[in-house]
Design a protein around this nucleic acid. Structure first.
Length: 926
RNA sequence: GCUCAGAUGGUGGAACUGGUAGACACGCAGGACUUAAAAUCCUGUUCCCGUUAAAGGAGUGCGGGUUCGAUUCCCGCUCUGAGUACCA
C-alpha cells in the first residue's frame, strides 16, 4: 500500500491512548527527566500553526529521552482562568466554566491529532476546584509567613509573634512595610489583638495595603504593570489610570536578591536573564537624609552618586511625596497645587510622550546639605517618580542631564565638582578626575571619595550605603469573577484566613459577571456567600497565581491531601527542560521562581530554582498574501485585479486575501471568485497566465486572513509531515513567518522513506542480508547527527539530515532489515506515527518502539579510506588531491610535497609552513 | 535614549571549536512518462565573463583589522527585529 498517513495516524493515536503508552511512573530505576511546556490558555480561536511549535520540539525531546533510557515526565494541562472567558460571559451570560470547557475540548482534539506523547493522566486545569484548592493553600502559607533577613529565608509568622512576645522588635531583621518599627515585648503584649494583627500585616509575605494600582475602568479591574502597555491595557487596549486601592500584594521584593543571584545558576537564554535582571533593577548607592530648615522633618533620598553630594544645588520631590503639603509655604501653595493637579491629569498618557519639557514648582522650603550645611531649595517635579527609591532625589546639575535641564530652566546654580568636568552645554556624569569644590573630598578620586563620604554620613547619622531595587511588590488582587477566590474573610477591617478544612473555597454563582453598581467586584453579587465570622474577600487572584506552581501538581496530580507529596517531589525534583515563549520573562517566569523559593524556604520542595534549562521558541508570524485592485479614474476600486509584478503600470490598492486560497503565492482564481460574493465576477490582469500575489509579514490574525490552521494541514499531509515541517522551518528559537510553501518537500521525504520498505507494487519487502559499508555509513551518520542535534535543540538541521540519509539509502536501493530497524527508531522521535507502523511491519511488538533503545553510534563506519580535498598554496586553491587517510600525518606531508603536481606550484622553493588540519594539509605557505 | 538579538542565492535556511561558503528544501528552467493534466522521476540552478566542454573573476549588510586562511574573532558604521523607558 502507498503511504496512507490518515489511517496510520488515527490507528496509532488510538493505540497510544488505549494503552496509556506515555504514562510516566513515579517510581522507576531509570534516571528521571522532566520536560515541560508552558500550558496554554484555552482561547476560543483554537490553535493556529504557531502554537504547536514549542510542543513539537518538546515532544521530540521527550521521545528522544525515552529512547535514551530516561523515565520521562511530559505532561500537559490548561491555564484556564482568564479574562476572555469572562468577557464572553459578560456579553452572553454564558458561565465562563462552560466556555472554558468547550475551548478545552477543541484544544484537546487539535493537540491529539498531532500525536504528542503527553501523559494525559496528569492533566491539570487551574480553574478546577481540585487544583485551586492548593493555589489557595499556598496563598495561606504565604499569609502565614514573614521574611527573616538574618536567616535570608521566609519563616512562619508564629515564630515572629513568639519573638515579639519575648524581646519585642529588638533583633528582628524583617522585610517590612516600615523598617523603623520599634517596640518592646511589654508594648507588644499591651496591644489588642486587632492592633497586633494590623502590625503583623506589615510583615506577612502576602498582605493587604493601600497602593497605587493600574485601574482599568473599561475592564473593571486592576492590572499588573506587565499587563499595561503605554498607558493602555495589553488586552483590549483600554485606557488605564492610577488609583489608590486596598490591595492584596505579594512581597516579592523580599526575594529580589535571591531572584537575581539565582539567574547565575540556571541554563536560560541570556537575553531572558537580562530582562529579569533589568526588571529586578538592582542599583547600589546610598540613602542620605537632608534635614529641613527650621523643622524637625527630614527628607531621605536615594542616590547612586553620593560622591557628587557637594554639587547638590536643589532637591526634587515627586508631586505625590507625602511631605509636599507640609513643606509648601503659604506663598507657594497656589503654584504647587496647580502643578500637582496638572501632573495628575498628565500622568496617564502624555507623561511619557512629553519627556523633553521641563516642568516643576518651588515649595518655598529649604533643606540643609549634611556635608557642608548649605541651604538648598526644595522643588517638586514629575520627572521624579513616587514609586522608585524614596520619591525624592538630590539634584546635581553638573552630573545629571535632567537635573542640568531643570537647573537651566529655573535658573539654579550649576556647580562643577570634578576637575575635568565639561559642563558648558550639558551635564557630564564622569567618574574620572579629582574632586573640586567638595570640602573634605577635594583631590580624591571616585572610589576613595565615595568610601569617605559614606563613612562621614554614617558617622553623622545622616546616611548609609544602600542597595535599591526597581522591582515592586506584586499586586495580587483582581476585581474579576473568573479567578481563584482569596481564602480570606474580614472581621472589622482585618483579614483572617479561613481554616484549611474549608478549602477549596469555591467560586460562587453570580447573576451577572460585572462589578456591582457601587463598584464592588463581581463576587459581591454572590448571594448567601458568607463566612460564619464575616464577609469573604471579594477580589480574586490574578492569572499568574495558578501558573506559579503547576509543575509540581503534574508530579502528583490526584493527591487529595497535599499539593504534591514529599516523596514524589523528592523523585522528580524540578523541571529539566522548559519550553515556552519569552513574553513571560517578567511575568510568569519571575513569579514562578519567587513561589518556588518560598516553597523551598517552607521545606515543601527541594530545589531553589524550578526550571533548570529553558528554551524560548520563536514567534511564528503571519505571512499575508495581497491582491491589487485596479482603481478607476475617479479613484474608486474596480472589480479587476492586477498581478503583483505588473502593479507599477497601473493605479491599484492592496487588499488582503485569504492565504488558504493561495498556493506558492499563486492565486487560485476560482476559489477567489467563490471567496466573497462581490468577487464572483472579478477580472484579472495576469502575468504568464497566472495571478501572483504580493507578500507581507505581520502578526497572525483573522482580520489579515493569514491564519493557517493546523487541522487543515493534518488533513492534507498528516501529523508527521506537519511535525517535521514545523521543525524544518528554521531554528527553534528564531521568530519567523509561517510559510506553507515548502511543506511538500517534507511530505515527499516521508513517502520516499515509506518506499524504502516496499517494492514497486507497494508490498512490504525487506531483505535480511547483511548491510554494506555504504549503507552502514549512511545509517551511522544519521544516528550521530540526531544525537548531536537534539542535545543542542537544532531540530531543523536534523530534518535535513534525515532527507540526506533517506536519499542515500534510496540511491543504494537499500532495504536491509538491520538498517531500517535502527533508522525507524531514530526517526520515531520526529515522525512517530509512520515509524510505529513500519516498526510493526518489521516484526516488532506494537507499542515497544517508544521505549526501544536508541542505536549506538559507531564512528568506525564513518572513516573513509581515501579523501579528495583541495590544497591551497598561499591561500589560493590550486588543486584536488586524493590522499590515503591511513597514512601517518608526517607521511602525508611527505607524500604531498613529493607529488609532481604540487611541485609544479612550489616552483622549486621550500615551503615556509605547511598547515595541517585534522591530519589534512590544507595550505602550503611559500 | 538604553539593553539585547540579527543581516548568507529568487525564498526558508546550512556551514558545531576559524579550514572546499550556499548542505537540505522550496521555487524556477529543461527533459522523461502521459492523448492531456496531475502525480512521479531525471538534469541544471550564487553572480559576472565565456563556452561544445573548459578556464577565469567576484562573493556571506558596509568600511577597516588580526591570520597562511575569516560567514565565524576584533574595531567602527548602516539597517532590521525585540525588550525597556524620566530608575536618581
Amino acid at each position: 500500500m502507498d503511504y496512507q498517513f490518515k489511517n496510520i495516524e488515527q490507528k496509532w493515536q488510538k493505540f497510544w491512548a488505549d494503552n496509556k503508552t506515555f504514562k510516566a511512573d513515579n517510581h522507576s530505576s531509570k534516571p528521571k527527566y522532566y520536560v515541560l511546556d508552558m500550558f496554554p490558555y484555552p482561547s476560543g480561536a483554537g490553535l493556529h500553526v504557531g502554537h504547536p511549535l514549542g510542543y513539537i520540539a518538546s515532544d521530540i525531546f521527550s521521545r528522544y529521552k525515552r529512547l535514551k533510557g530516561f523515565n520521562v515526565l511530559h505532561p500537559m494541562g490548561y491555564d484556564s482562568f482568564g479574562l476572555p472567558a469572562e468577557q464572553y460571559a459578560i456579553q452572553t451570560g454564558q458561565h465562563p466554566a462552560i466556555t472554558t470547557e468547550a475551548n478545552i475540548a477543541t484544544y484537546r482534539r487539535q493537540l491529539d491529532q498531532i500525536g504528542f506523547s503527553f501523559d494525559w493522566s496528569r492533566e491539570v486545569r487551574t480553574s478546577s476546584p481540585d487544583y485551586y484548592k492548593w493555589t489557595q493553600w499556598i496563598f495561606m502559607q504565604l499569609f502565614n509567613s514573614w521574611y527573616n533577613k538574618a536567616a535570608d529565608k521566609a519563616q512562619s509568622i508564629e515564630k515572629l509573634v513568639a519573638h515579639f512576645e519575648q524581646q519585642g522588635s529588638a533583633g528582628v531583621e524583617a522585610v517590612c512595610d516600615d523598617d523603623t518599627l520599634s517596640f518592646t515585648a511589654t508594648e507588644w503584649k499591651a496591644l489588642s489583638n486587632e492592633e497586633q494583627q494590623t502590625e503583623l500585616l506589615k510583615y506577612r509575605i502576602t498582605y493587604l495595603r493601600e497602593s497605587t494600582v493600574n485601574w482599568c475602568a473599561a475592564l473593571g479591574t486592576v492590572l499588573a504593570n506587565d499587563e499595561v502597555k503605554d498607558g493602555f491595557s495589553e488586552r483590549g487596549g483600554y485606557p488605564v489610570e492610577q488609583k489608590k486601592m486596598m490591595q492584596w500584594s505579594m512581597r516579592i521584593t523580599a526575594y529580589a536578591e535571591r531572584l537575581l543571584q539565582g539567574l547565575d545558576t540556571i541554563d536560560w537564554p541570556e537575553p531572558l536573564k537580562e530582562m529579569q535582571r533589568n526588571w529586578i533593577g538592582k542599583s547600589t548607592g546610598a540613602s542620605v537624609k537632608f534635614g529641613v530648615e527650621n523643622s524637625t522633618e527630614h527628607i531621605e533620598v536615594f542616590t547612586t552618586r553620593v560622591d557628587t553630594i557637594f554639587g547638590v544645588t536643589f532637591l526634587v520631590l515627586a508631586p505625590e511625596h507625602e511631605l509636599v503639603a507640609t513643606l509648601t509655604t503659604p506663598e507657594q501653595k497656589a503654584e504647587i497645587d496647580a502643578y500637582i493637579i496638572q501632573s495628575k491629569k498628565k500622568s496617564e498618557l502624555d507623561r511619557m510622550a512629553d519627556t523633553k519639557t521641563v516642568s516643576g514648582a518651588f515649595t518655598g522650603s529649604y533643606v540643609i546639605n549634611p556635608v557642608n550645611d548649605e541651604k538648598v531649595p526644595i522643588y517638586i517635579a514629575d520627572y521624579v517618580l513616587a514609586g522608585y527609591g524614596t520619591g525624592a532625589v538630590m539634584a546635581v546639575p553638573s552630573g545629571d542631564q535632567r537635573d542640568y535641564l531643570f537647573a537651566k530652566h529655573f535658573n539654579l546654580p550649576i556647580l562643577p565638582i570634578i576637575d575635568i568636568q565639561n559642563i558648558e552645554t550639558e551635564a557630564d556624569p564622569t567618574k574620572e578626575g579629582k574632586y573640586i569644590n567638595s570640602g573634605f573630598m577635594n583631590g580624591l578620586a571616585y572610589k576613595e571619595a565615595t568610601a569617605k563620604v559614606i563613612a562621614y554620613l554614617e558617622e553623622k547619622g545622616a546616611g548609609k550605603a544602600k542597595v535599591n531595587y526597581r522591582m515592586r511588590d506584586a499586586i495580587f488582587g483582581r476585581q474579576r469573577y473568573w479567578g481563584e477566590p482569596v481564602p480570606v474573610y474580614f472581621k472589622g477591617d482585618l483579614p483572617y484566613l479561613i481554616s484549611e478544612k474549608e478549602l477549596p473555597l469555591l467560586l460562587p454563582e453570580v447573576d451577572k459577571y460585572l462589578p456591582t453598581e457601587s463598584g464592588e467586584p463581581p463576587l459581591a453579587r454572590a448571594k448567601d456567600w458568607k463566612h460564619a465570622e464575616g464577609a469573604y474577600e471579594h477580589s480574586t487572584m490574578p492569572g499568574w497565581a495558578g501558573s506559579s506552581w503547576y509543575w509540581y501538581r503534574y508530579m502528583d496530580a490526584h493527591n487529595q491531601n497535599e499539593f504534591a507529596s514529599k516523596e514524589v517531589i523528592d523523585y522528580w525534583k524540578d523541571v529539566d527542560l522548559y519550553i515556552g515563549g519569552s513574553e513571560h520573562a517578567t511575568g510568569h517566569l519571575l513569579y514562578s521562581r519567587f513561589w518556588n523559593k518560598f516553597l523551598k524556604d517552607m521545606g515543601l520542595v527541594v530545589e531553589e530554582e524550578p526550571f533548570k534549562k529553558l528554551i524560548n521558541q520563536g514567534m511564528i508570524q503571519g505571512r499575508s498574501n495581497i491582491v491589487y485592485r485596479l482603481i478607476d479614474d475617479e479613484g474608486r476600486g474596480t472589480n479587476t485585479f492586477v498581478s503583483y509584478h505588473l502593479i507599477n503600470q497601473y493605479k491599484t490598492s492592496p487588499l488582503h486575501v485569504d492565504v488558504n486560497i493561495v498556493e506558492n503565492d499563486i492565486l487560485n482564481i476560482n476559489k477567489f471568485k467563490a471567496w466573497r460574493e462581490d468577487f464572483k465576477d472579478a477580472e484579472f490582469i495576469l502575468e504568464n497566465g497566472k495571478y501572483i500575489c504580493g507578500v507581507e509579514v505581520e502578526k497572525m490574525s483573522k482580520s489579515k486572513f493569514n491564519v493557517v490552521n493546523p487541522d487543515m494541514l493534518v488533513e492534507r499531509y498528516g501529523a508527521d509531515t506537519l511535525r517535521m515541517y514545523e521543525m524544518f522551518l528554521g531554528p527553534l528559537e528564531q521568530s519567523k513567518p509561517w510559510n506553507t510553501n515548502g511543506i511538500e518537500g517534507v511530505f515527499k521525504f516521508l513517502r520516499k522513506f515509506w518506499k524504502l520498505f516496499h517494492d514497486e507494487q507497494f508490498n512490504f519487502r525487506v531483505s535480511d542480508e547483511n548491510p554494506t559499508k555504504a549503507e552502514l555509513k549512511a545509517l551511522h551518520k544519521i544516528i550521530h547527527k540526531v544525537e548531536e542535534d537534539v542535545e543542542r535543540f537544532s531540530f531543523n538541521t536534523s530534518v535535513s539530515s534525515f532527507m540526506i540519509a533517506v536519499n542515500e539509502l534510496a540511491d543504494l536501493k537499500c532495504n536491509k532489515r538491520a538498517i531500517l530497524h535502527d533508522l525507524v527508531i531514530v526517526l520515531s522521535a520526529y515522525a512517530p506515527h509512520i515509524c510505529e507502523e513500519l516498526w510493526v511491519l518489521l516484526g516488532n511488538e506494537a507499542g515497544t518502539l517508544s521505549y526501544a533503545p536508541y542505536p549506538t553510534f559507531n564512528p568506525a563506519y564513518l572513516i573513509e579510506d581515501e579523501f579528495a580535498y583541495p590544497i591551497s598554496v598561499n591561500g589560493k586553491t590550486k588543486m584536488n588531491l586524493n590522499i590515503s587517510l591511513t597514512l601517518e600525518a608526517a607521511d602525508i606531508e611527505k607524500t604531498i610535497l613529493a607529488n609532481t603536481d604540487v611541485q609544479k606550484y612550489l616552483d622549486g622553493k621550500i615551503p615556509k609552513k605547511v598547515i595541517v588540519v585534522k591530519g589534512r594539509i590544507v595550505n602550503i605557505v611559500l
